[in-house]
Computed example of a mutant assay.
Amino acid sequence: MSQSRSHQTSPTLSVLDLVPVRSDQTSGDALAATLELAREADALGYRRYWVAEHHNMPAVASTNPPVVMAMIAGATERLRVGSGGVMLPNHAPLVVAEQFSLLEAAYPGRIDLGIGRAPGTDPVTSYALRHGAGGVSDEAVTRFPEYVDNVLAMMEPEGVAVAVAGRQQVLKATPAAAGVPEMWLLGSSDYSARLAAEKGMPYVFAHHFSGSGTAEALELYRSTFRPSAALAEPRTFLTVNVSVAPTAEEARLRALPQLQMMLALRTGQPLQAQVLVEEAEKVQAPPAQQDVIDAMAARWVIDAPEAARARVAELASTYGVDEVMVVPVAGAHVGTEPGSSPARVETLRLLAA
């Protein structure tokens, strides 16, 4: 499915936002910075703006995608706003269907529902989210394909018939739906690729997080895809971490805080709010850990504008997609206004120029 480099064109750009919380920010500051970034993405012509679901993490304020999505959709005019994604094992399917049906009613034609199978948190928080119903291997994970079908059916205008105590009752996510959100399956393994292909749904592989297995997952999805009433042929795009600055060196410095946070996550170190660039510069990682940082950085797009745009186009060509969803990972310098994120804004501006 790859294309030759000579046929590269500029892919459509979208945004994935974890609503990062820096060491100089409150949660409210982080949300204010995200709204600023979303408005900029809207003005620059980005296609989508998705927010993740992560819980109990010191550097991530995106704990509740539907709530953040409502704020973003209300602050923008054109963007498709979505979840990247809702971790379905954490929630009752009806609750998810109700939330996204209301969002679609309020912002028709602009809502995406990205669904994932991972917990998006630690086992203790996962346990609390489900009222003590168990960890990630419980029934909610096992029955994930069924729950995906339930969400889809409940959001349809006619609803779904449910048998309770021998009686049939129609269950609707909203009383009078005029449309439904576009639903995507997300994943970082071949499980969701197979399931999306089987159900004829659009699919996104978490390339920005995994960094490996992307080609294999996309090929599996495309080669086993079964057309559905909603989708006639495979539909997917690429996600990638990006830091763009006027110079490659500045882009590298701005990426350091996120690189160090990902290192801590992958090596089991205590997590903390995202440090500022000057704080990150003072950290001297042991050689083995520096190797991990260098390997991650090599998979990210960290560069000056022209080189960064070329790299994004090359990734799109390599994986045969016409859309790239960027995670703007540029950190902030000391003295940055807490309610803003100028380096992330500049990343979007320079990439779209």
Rank of each mutant, 00 (worst) to 15 (best):
V151N: 05
A176Q: 12
G179C: 06
R167D: 12
G179L: 01
L152A: 14
T142F: 00
S126H: 15
V170I: 15
D112Q: 05
M183F: 04
A178N: 07
E98A: 10
V151Q: 03
V148R: 01
A128Q: 14
S101V: 10
I115F: 00
G134M: 09
A153I: 05
V95S: 12
A97C: 09
Y127D: 15
E146Q: 12
T174F: 13
L113K: 01
V96F: 08
D149T: 11
F100G: 07
L102N: 09
P181L: 07
E156L: 10
M154F: 15
V164T: 13
P93D: 09
P157H: 03
F100M: 11
E182W: 00
L94G: 03
L94E: 08
P157L: 07
R117Y: 03
R167E: 15
A161D: 15
S137V: 06
H91N: 11
E104D: 14
E182H: 07
E182F: 00
V136M: 10
D149L: 13
A153C: 06
M155W: 02
A118H: 02
V164N: 06
Q99M: 11
E139P: 00
A177W: 02
V86Q: 03
S101K: 01
V86G: 02
P93K: 06
E146G: 13
D112F: 04
P145R: 05
F144Q: 08
K172Y: 01
S101G: 15
V160A: 12
F144L: 11
V124N: 08
G114R: 04
K172N: 05
S83D: 09
P145I: 06
L113I: 08
E139G: 00
G114D: 08
P181Q: 07
N90G: 09
Q168M: 11
G134T: 10
P108A: 04
V141W: 12
H91D: 05
A177F: 06
V148N: 05
G85S: 14
S137G: 13
E182R: 14
Y127R: 14
V96R: 05
P145C: 09
D112P: 09
E156N: 07
N90A: 13
A97Q: 07
A118M: 04
E98T: 10
E158H: 13
E139C: 02
A118S: 12
E104M: 05
D122E: 12
V151M: 03
S83I: 07
A177K: 02
Q168N: 13
A128M: 14
I115Y: 04
P157E: 08
Q99L: 10
A176V: 11
G159R: 00
R117M: 08
R117P: 04
R143H: 03
L88W: 00
